[in-house]
Amino acid sequence: MSKPLSIVKSRFIPVNIENIDTDQIIPARFLKATTKEGFGKNLFRDWRYENDDETKPKADFPLNQARYSGEILVAGKNFGCGSSREHAAWSILDYGFRVVVSSFFADIFKNNALNNGVLPVQVSDGFLQKIFARDAESELTVDLARQTITINASGESESFDINSYKKTCLLNGYDDIDFLLSIKPEIETFETERG
């Protein structure tokens, strides 16, 4: 079970960079854990700190800027490309994000996010630029049931796609694994029939 998600109304943190790969989200040297917790502090590690030194945050990186906060990460297109490491989704969740907005997502990241109760919201390039143009106090509302994302101050809104199965899972906090375990007899029948 992951935490159910329906409406997220929050400020956002913009990382206006394209092709953010999973090595940037969580560098490989932090993959040596055997649990899923505690990755948030290393999210975007090498963009956040000078020379890997936590006492030297890079002032120009949005995660280090006090004016930005919220449960929504907004990033440039082709977010999450590269490695299949689910640690990328874990670090985003552990940092406190529930939604990632971009104009394009890499496949494996998208699945990993959904499997951890993090909603990837794919918007048009135009709408993404509208969000980036807003100031730090602006709030967004992501409504999963209605499949809409709205810039609250202007009321500008766009709908996003998600298949109804995944939507049900997120709204209720269900996992794929619960579903697959529930159809195990059918899987066994399939195995027998294919020989």
Partner: peptide, 8 residues
């Protein structure tokens, strides 16, 4: 390639 939830 798959994520760890899918490995499970």
């Amino acid at each position: 390639g798959i994520g760890t939830s899918e490995v499970e």
